[in-house]
């Protein structure tokens, strides 16, 4: 089985990789590019731990082939902080203790960032529905929702 050569952009970096035709973008990120921040919790689009953005659109990287990344712009958790400057959501997750084990955290952060880009002032209910595809088993979501709403407020005030 010959591999496919993919030229893409990951977090703004020009990136190339070789992958099998049936390989998911998640596997390509983790196994070909060593970017293990995106997690596999289910492999079937039910948990959101592998959330990334493709051309700015939130997707599950387990539900997309690596080959489909050709020419796209991929955004992952590894690109969320700018150097040592955490994104406000990252800071608020730490401040609010919005993570316990931390396995769902990268996917939740990527999804929450996408939410705030689409809707800078979400209600609690809008936040809960937007994030319904990101399973967390530790926290009961309470502190996660608080962290997202607090980050949204801070980002609104800063802009």
């Amino acid at each position: 089985m010959s591999k496919i050569h993919v030229t893409t952009s990951v977090n703004g970096d020009p990136t190339e990789f070789l992958c099998d035709a049936d390989e998911t973008l998640l596997d390509a990120l983790r196994d070909r590019l060593g970017m293990t921040g995106s997690k596999e919790g289910c492999g079937t689009g039910d948990c959101g731990a592998c959330s990334v953005t493709v051309d700015g659109r939130l997707v599950c990287s387990c539900l997309m082939l690596g080959a489909e990344a050709e020419g796209r712009e991929i955004g992952t958790i590894e690109g969320m902080a700018k150097g040592d400057q955490l994104h406000p959501l990252q800071r608020k997750f730490i401040e609010h203790a919005a993570l316990q084990c931390g396995i769902c955290t990268p996917g939740l952060l990527v999804a929450a960032k996408s939410l705030l880009e689409n809707n800078p002032d979400p209600t609690e209910e809008e936040t809960r529905y937007w994030l319904a595809g990101n399973l967390c088993r530790c926290t009961g979501y309470d502190k996660i929702i608080r962290a997202v709403l607090d980050a949204a407020q801070e980002m609104r005030e800063a802009s």
Binding site: R30, T36, G37, I77, E78, L86, Q90, I94
Partner: peptide, 21 residues
Amino acid sequence: TRVKRPDGIDKVTGKARFGAD
């Protein structure tokens, strides 16, 4: 008190290494 956890930054930036990593 409610101090910040020492593994916080690794876990919000994707650097923390879990079993499959």
